[in-house]
Amino acid sequence: MDVAFINPFVESVYDFFSTMLDSEVQRKSLSLREGYRAAPNDVVASIDLDGWIRGTVEISFPRGTAIAVFNRLTGMDSREVDDSVLDSVGESVNIIAGSAKAKLGQADAPPLDLGIPRVFCGHQDGIDSQTMRWIEISFASGLGPLALRVAFQADS
């Protein structure tokens, strides 16, 4: 996977946090991962992109970050991960991936198609995450830590 694909997603994480969460975010480490198992404490949202490149984007929030993001987005005061919090994590990956796909756009190619987000807590059997090759970027933010994972292959 071309690392050049990653920058639009990092920029989109910055845009999402500054525009909708009024929070700063700082990029930390970048690593390559041959599959992974989500930590039991993590809320993970995944979305597919399809077109001249195909792949999957994931955003992973520890539960505390997920609750803080939900509360900041909605003005609510949730204390636990419920369906509403899961929905907000799904919408987060939708916004980040959607914003990034426009930045990735090629003049001679139609826009990439964006899928519907899937959200899960902790490790789930049958999720492709374990077999895919990911680039993972970790971030620190005013709402807690988070990670972005991207796995892509370009059409030949």
């Binding site: 909708m20 987005l73 909605t74 003005g75 509403s84 929905d87 907000s88 919408e91």
Partner: peptide, 9 residues
């Protein structure tokens, strides 16, 4: 919107 969160926003 299919997201309840976005509908609230």
């Amino acid at each position: 919107d299919d997201s309840e969160t976005t509908r609230r926003i």
